[in-house]
């Protein structure tokens, strides 16, 4: 579904990404893991066409993203930013409705069908009782859920999420990750940027690990691609991988 081929990126003389190559299949929950400053966000922005790479190519379903205009991109990939506040006090329903923008044609914007789709998605995520609440007045977890609802309303085969759980409490973190697994289970490719190794080990099917040397340090199923050796190379001797009930857990050493 998503193919990144020998991607290089630099800000002026400052190199950020070197020779990044990976693939994420249909219906896969794929993590992009790396320490702070390893270029996760930059890679994300290249995939979404926010930034132009120096060389290399990115394909969605075999099609080069350079050949897609803004509205064609928006029909293929949705972007869930870190939860934030908006400049104006939009309601949850209005924020989610914006996800329908690429499918709207016409003078007025959203139609009845768009509103029905959005209400369905809000009740699927159990936030339909918040539909008419001010988005800015919600908790961080509720805002993140609203942004995910917007991405689902956009109805794209690919969804990119930027650190979706970094500012949430533990319960909301688990809620979001289980939700992402469900979304991937419906056949969408979900790419998540994260810096928590446990989340990767517990929830993801595939991981791309970005190292300090600006390259892909390892990739594959998390159990193999994020094992003790990889973690030691990334972080030094600060952590180890243990087992609890057959699940891998990263503990401080």
């Amino acid at each position: 579904m998503l193919t990144v081929d020998q991607l290089c990126f630099s800000y002026g003389a400052h190199e950020i990404l070197r020779d990044i190559t990976f693939e994420a299949g249909e219906g896969q929950l794929c993590a992009l893991f790396g320490p702070n400053g390893s270029g996760k966000t930059t890679l994300f922005k290249c995939c979404l066409n926010f930034l132009q790479p120096k060389s290399g190519a990115i394909y969605f379903g075999g099609k080069h993203i350079r050949e897609m205009n803004v509205s064609a991109m928006a029909k293929r990939a949705a972007y869930v930013p870190q939860e934030h506040k908006t400049a104006f006090p939009f309601t949850v329903r209005e924020v989610a409705l914006m996800g329908r923008s690429p499918h709207m044609n016409g003078f007025w914007g959203s139609g009845k069908a768009d509103r029905e789709i959005v209400m369905e998605i809000l009740s699927m995520l159990n936030i339909d009782h918040l539909a008419y609440k001010n988005y800015n007045a919600l908790s961080g977890g509720q805002r993140q859920l609203t942004l995910i609802a917007r991405a689902l309303a956009q109805d794209t085969p690919l969804i990119f999420l930027d650190e979706p759980t970094s500012s949430l409490d533990f319960k909301n973190q688990l809620l979001i990750w289980n939700l992402l697994r469900e979304i991937a289970g419906q056949g969408r490719t979900v790419l998540v940027c994260t810096h928590d190794p446990n989340h990767v080990l517990w929830f993801c099917e595939q991981v791309i690990v970005l190292g300090e040397d600006r390259r892909v340090a390892s990739q594959g199923p998390p159990r193999r691609a994020l094992d003790q050796n990889v973690l030691r190379r990334l972080f030094g001797d600060v952590c180890r991988v243990a087992q609890a009930d057959g699940v891998d857990v990263v503990l401080p050493s």
């Binding site: 922005k45 509205s71 029909k75 972007y79 914006m98 690429p102």
Partner: peptide
Amino acid sequence: NVLSMGDEEARALG
């Protein structure tokens, strides 16, 4: 409305 969400989000929303 969409533009008021910021440049990157507007672009991602088409």
